[in-house]
Design a protein around this nucleic acid. Structure first.
Lengths: 192, 192
DNA sequence: CGATTCTTTGAAAACAGTCAATCTGTGTGG
DNA sequence: CCACACAGATTGACTGTTTTCAAAGAATCG
């Protein structure tokens, strides 16, 4: 698997000639991850931005009560990283882990500046990508605050039925902000 | 009041010579808002990105139960807009409103592309700003999920003591995701 | 098949919301 | 300058949603 998916994605948002595409390909590294493999662990400094060519990542952290709290899922054509750790070179408070067998393109932090200098349109590409990501994060906050647990499940299950198949229920429960037991009870009600 | 604060802010993240600064000044419009004045109302299409020179904005929406749910506060040197409405020219699901008397620099959507073409470093500036904003949004989700109402109040009150002075408690309660009554009870406990 | 991981179920408890009444402060108009 | 109105804050009783804990039941993987 190669970086064609990434180049195609970038060309949806900005121009990129073949020379530039070659520069990009020289700056990213394709990595194959097995299910449950980590790209980042809490306490480590995040070293790259990850673009998902195929598969599914999750980011999560450990709460004070030793529970896993899932922050985000990322599927094909999404970027995932911890920007705070990446840009400030600080230890991260998050884990990034493959939910299923996954292929990513890694853009290492130490190659990013040179690449952006050589291909300035990438600044534009990431600006647009980040606008979308920020929007998604804000919509998430909106749903968390305006919907009950039951409603969040209905909304999510209705909006992403195919996605539900790819993740275990305990991860969905964590993402939606409640316990696996409660999700189980919601489903029991729904079926009857 | 003029756009010096904005130019100073941009120069913290990227270069900007005097010609470029003039182009920028020609593209933004300074606006004075009275307390409670709106920059955007639910259902309208958002037409600009707003940089706060002085004052305090909040973004909020109306829940199904007709309650105001606050999404964000923004103070001096922050940008606020609804990117989804701005970029896709869709009706917004949010309100943006002055909490106190506020001065903003407005960058209208219909001038943005020409400005970015003339001053490409602004793509970089906004990329960096958006990374920070995305980070803040993700930390917010982290706190919502890992802390109880009581803990969220303690964390916020400890982290931004001066900010607490600027907003009424019912707004803080909404931002933290609980009712004004509950906040009142938290405070009663803390004092004793 | 055995072992682990995931899901379901039920009872008790905790946390936060709702509603209604009261209290406080602030600003405005007469 | 006072009185009143109104927005915001507090309090208490009651309700409801979600969690916790413990145990048992399915499903999946090597």
């Amino acid at each position: 698997m190669n970086s064609n998916a990434l180049i195609t994605h970038i060309r949806q948002y900005t121009s990129l000639n073949n020379e530039e595409a070659v520069l990009l390909e020289g700056s990213v590294e394709i990595r194959e991850l097995k299910k449950k493999e980590f790209l980042l662990k809490e306490g480590e400094i995040c070293t790259a931005n990850y673009f998902i060519i195929k598969g599914l990542l999750r980011s999560w952290f450990t709460t004070e009560k030793d529970a896993e709290q899932i922050c985000q899922f990322a599927i094909e054509n999404w970027w995932m990283t911890d920007y705070q750790s990446l840009e400030l070179r600080q230890p991260s408070g998050f884990n990034i882990q493959a939910v299923e067998s996954t292929t990513v393109a890694c853009l290492p932090r130490d190659r990013q500046d040179a690449l952006f200098a050589a291909v300035p349109q990438l600044e534009r590409y990431f600006r647009i990508i980040l606008e979308k990501a920020l929007n998604a994060a804000q919509l998430r906050v909106k749903y968390i605050f305006s919907l009950s647990g039951q409603e969040r499940y209905d909304h999510f299950a209705g909006g992403f039925p195919e996605f539900i198949q790819r993740i275990p229920q305990y991860m969905l429960a964590s993402y939606l902000g409640f316990t696996p037991e409660f999700l189980s009870k919601i489903r029991a009600k729904r079926i009857s």
